[in-house]
């Protein structure tokens, strides 16, 4: 009897995990078909940015959502990735693939070095420290002559190729690259959240003191989450540099980027597998559309609408948009039980 009682929920857990994975693979495959239907360059750009921010926010979510450490300084890691990739390519001829990897590793190391002092800080003290550290990074890069200082770095133009990751006319290859990046960040999150680390992170988020007393090494858990999160954020930054072929301090390290990486996860649903993607799917096209239709004149109406959206969603859906699904799923379960 007792064996069955234990085995039953376990089986359903495995089944639901498998179902999640199958759904994800179907979604990725469906997204991969989009370029067949879309030929317009503007739409393609919006789609690429949407997938990029889905991937970035998924990376942010690992530290901010699952582990509960609200970083508002991820622009630093994005910038490290963008600068490492650009400098290695422009000055040393190392292709973006190597540059992104190097940027990712460097970024993870920086996250560990910064995590050592920062993870002693709690709540708002932690968030504000991350803003300030990213701002110091921005100021230093601004005055870094080797890195082009305020002028930034222009990528040379080369023939289209997957080797250099440069495509001047056809943007579809970028779409596939960034879809791949999003899929990888999703799969990594999927794999980790139900592992030992995933449980540690949620324990740390809910109550660090209780977690510590139950034998979770809170500090190491945070460090692990920070390193993984920073690694993928930097790869996104490296991709962005290749995609736009020109970077300067403001365009990759501004505080705005830190918020843009956190926002999709927050509005979609922090600490949920699909939250960042859902949030990015709403926010990025919305931002691009309002900007092209209302912001072109610099009137500021695009900001008003964007701000209202952020305000209304965060006030009415504190659990994010994914919270609606969770609630309706709970209701359905309740009905079945009744």
């Amino acid at each position: 009897m007792s064996e069955i009682a234990v085995a039953a929920p376990n089986n359903s857990f495995v089944a639901s995990r498998r179902r999640q994975l199958v759904i994800a693979l179907i979604v990725f495959a469906a997204i991969a078909l989009i370029p067949r239907a879309v030929s317009d360059v503007y739409t393609m750009n919006v789609l690429i940015l949407t997938l990029l921010f889905a991937a970035l926010s998924q990376s942010w979510n690992i530290l901010g959502g699952y582990c509960g450490q609200v970083s508002l300084g991820h622009a630093l890691y994005f910038g490290i990735g963008a600068y490492a990739t650009s400098i290695l390519f422009v000055k040393f001829g190392i292709v973006a693939w190597g540059g992104m990897l190097a940027g990712g590793v460097l970024s993870a190391l920086v996250a560990l070095a910064l995590g050592y002092p920062c993870f002693r800080l709690k709540g708002h003290y932690f968030s504000i420290a991350t803003i300030v550290i990213a701002e110091i990074g921005l100021l230093l890069v601004h005055n870094w002559d080797y890195g082009g200082a305020a002028l930034g770095i222009q990528w040379p133009f080369n023939p289209d190729s997957w080797w250099t990751l440069q495509f001047a006319r056809d943007k579809v290859p970028y779409f596939y690259f960034v879809l791949g990046l999003f899929a990888v960040t999703w799969l990594v999150t999927y794999a980790i959240v139900e592992s030992r680390w995933g449980y540690w992170w949620r324990a740390v988020k809910d109550d660090p003191d209780a977690a510590e007393s139950l034998g979770v090494t809170v500090f190491n858990s945070k460090m692990g989450a920070a390193a993984i999160s920073a690694f993928f954020t930097a790869i996104g930054g490296g991709f962005y540099a290749a995609f736009v072929s020109y970077i300067d301090p403001e365009s990759v390290m501004h505080f705005r980027f830190s918020l843009l990486m956190a926002l999709p996860a927050v509005l979609g649903g922090v600490g949920s597998l699909w939250g960042p993607a859902v949030g990015a799917l709403i926010l990025i096209p919305m931002a691009e559309l309002t900007r092209s239709y209302l912001g072109g004149t610099g009137s500021g109406l695009d900001l008003v609408i964007y701000g209202l959206l952020v305000m209304v969603v965060s006030l009415t859906q504190p659990e994010g948009i994914m919270g609606i699904f969770k609630r309706s799923a709970k209701k359905a379960d309740a009905k079945v039980e009744a």
Binding site: A262, L303, I305, L309, V310, S314, L315
Partner: peptide, 29 residues
């Protein structure tokens, strides 16, 4: 924002951030 049952910290950050964008946009307008 104070009534949020879940993620109160983040709701406050992003609700006030949204307000900041609205004020900035209006000033620009």
């Amino acid at each position: 924002a104070m009534r949020a049952k879940a993620n109160p910290g983040m709701v406050q950050i992003f609700a006030t951030f949204g307000l900041a964008l609205v004020i900035q946009g209006l000033a620009q307008y």
